[in-house]
C-alpha cells in the first residue's frame, strides 16, 4: 500500500484544525509551567524547611512518575469533588503541572547563578526585597536559562499527543479517528509524525540561534 497523496491532501485541512488545538495546549500549558515553576523554585529555595521540603517532595514525585497517569488523575479526580473539567482543560493543567517541576529546576539553577553580591548591593541601596528580586535578580537570572526553558517547551509540545488518551481532539486523536473511519492509518499518522518532526527541527534551529545571540550579547 503506497502513500496516497490525494487522500493526504483531503485530510490535511482537518489535521490543520487539530494542530491549532495542539499548539493552543502547548502554549497555555507552557505559560502555566513557567508561572508554577517559578513559584515552585522559590518554595524549593525557601529557608523555611516547612516550605522547601514539601516543594522538593512534590517536584521529585511529579518528575519521577508518568505524565499519562497524571493526566488520567486530573481528568477523573476533579469530577469526584463536583468540578467537571473539559478534557482539554484537564490535559493542559496536567501538562503545565508536569513541566512546572522541570522548569522549577531550571529556574533554581538560574537564580543560584546570580552572584550574592547583587543581593548585598541592593540591600546597601535600601531596595525592598521584593523590588530587588523583581528588578535586579530576575532580569539577570532569566536570560541565561532561556535556551533550557525553550527545550522544555519543545518537550512539552511533543507530549501533547498524550491528551488523545482522554479524547481531546488534538492532532493524534484526530488522526486516529480518521484512521478508524477510513481504515487508512498510513497517511494521517505519518502526517502527524512529519508535523512534529518539522516543528521540532525548526525550533531546535531557533534555539541554537537564540543561544548564539545570547552568547554574543553577554560577551
Amino acid at each position: 500500500m503506497l502513500f496516497d497523496w490525494s487522500f493526504a491532501l483531503e485530510i490535511l485541512p482537518i489535521l490543520a484544525q487539530a494542530a491549532v488545538i495542539t499548539i493552543e495546549a502547548t502554549l497555555i500549558g507552557f505559560v502555566l509551567a513557567l508561572l508554577l515553576g517559578l513559584a515552585l523554585a522559590l518554595a524549593r529555595m525557601s529557608r523555611n524547611p516547612f516550605i522547601s521540603f514539601p516543594a522538593a517532595g512534590f517536584i521529585e514525585f511529579i518528575r519521577s512518575t508518568p505524565l499519562l497517569i497524571q493526566i488520567f488523575f486530573l481528568y477523573f479526580v476533579f469530577p469526584k469533588f463536583g468540578i467537571v473539567l473539559p478534557a482539554l482543560v484537564a490535559g493542559i493543567l496536567a501538562l503545565g503541572l508536569h513541566y512546572s517541576t522541570y522548569c522549577a529546576e531550571v529556574y533554581r539553577a538560574g537564580l543560584e547563578n546570580v552572584p550574592r553580591g547583587q543581593w548585598e548591593a541592593a540591600t546597601a541601596l535600601n531596595l525592598a526585597p521584593m523590588a530587588t528580586f523583581r528588578d535586579i535578580i530576575l532580569p539577570q537570572a532569566i536570560p541565561p536559562i532561556i535556551p533550557a526553558l525553550a527545550n522544555y517547551l519543545v518537550a512539552l509540545f511533543k507530549e501533547t499527543p498524550l491528551l488523545s488518551a482522554i479524547a481531546v481532539l488534538e492532532l493524534m486523536q484526530t488522526a486516529k479517528i480518521i484512521g478508524s473511519d477510513t481504515f487508512r492509518y498510513l497517511e494521517p499518522i505519518t502526517l502527524v509524525g512529519l508535523f512534529f518532526l518539522v516543528m521540532s527541527l525548526v525550533s531546535a534551529a531557533l534555539i541554537r540561534q537564540g543561544e548564539a545571540w545570547l552568547r554574543r550579547r553577554r560577551s
Partner: peptide
C-alpha cells in the same frame, strides 16, 4: 536520531502499531 527525537514517542508507537501492518 533526528526522526526519533523529533517526533513524539506516542506517535512512533502508533506508527509502528497501526501503519506498519499496511506494509
Amino acid at each position: 536520531v533526528e526522526i526519533f527525537r523529533g517526533t513524539s514517542a506516542l506517535v512512533q508507537l502508533f506508527w509502528l502499531y497501526f501503519v506498519l501492518p499496511h506494509f
